[in-house]
């Protein structure tokens, strides 16, 4: 898996880490049972604070993507509960947006609006 961090992008670094790992899992490139690199190693490689990596791993755990085990680090779990159902709804949403010629950004803005309402 590739993780890219851009300090100039404005998004917090832990958020960028979460996004990178999450999209690897959602795309199936990180299989269930696979171990994520040790937080210390990943922090060294990316020249960030180890606590930032641990923070990202904790967010991923709270979202149900990884399990944190003492001594074994972060292990990818089967998938977040209910993910398959939501994935099917997203596919339907995308199909509907395409049918009505709505831009992806418009749809994403709607989704964000819905969550912040």
């Amino acid at each position: 898996m590739i993780i890219r961090i851009d300090p100039a992008s404005g998004a917090p670094i832990f958020e960028q880490l979460v996004r990178a790992v999450r999209s690897e899992i959602l795309a199936g490139r990180l299989a269930s049972g696979e171990r994520l690199p040790a937080a210390r190693d990943l922090a060294t490689s990316l020249d960030v604070n180890p606590h930032t990596v641990l923070h990202a791993y904790q967010v991923l755990r709270d979202e149900g993507f990884v399990e944190l085990r003492r001594g074994r680090g972060a292990v990818v779990t089967h998938s977040a509960p209910g993910l398959d159902e939501v994935r099917a709804l997203v596919a339907a949403l995308a199909a509907s947006a395409r049918a009505h010629d709505l831009a992806a950004d418009t749809v994403l803005a709607l989704v964000r609006e819905e969550f912040h309402a």
Partner: peptide
């Protein structure tokens, strides 16, 4: 090759 933006950091890892 992966093209990195100035200041961008990246790591690749696999088992």
């Amino acid at each position: 090759a992966v093209r990195l933006a100035p200041g961008e950091r990246a790591v690749w890892t696999a088992v």
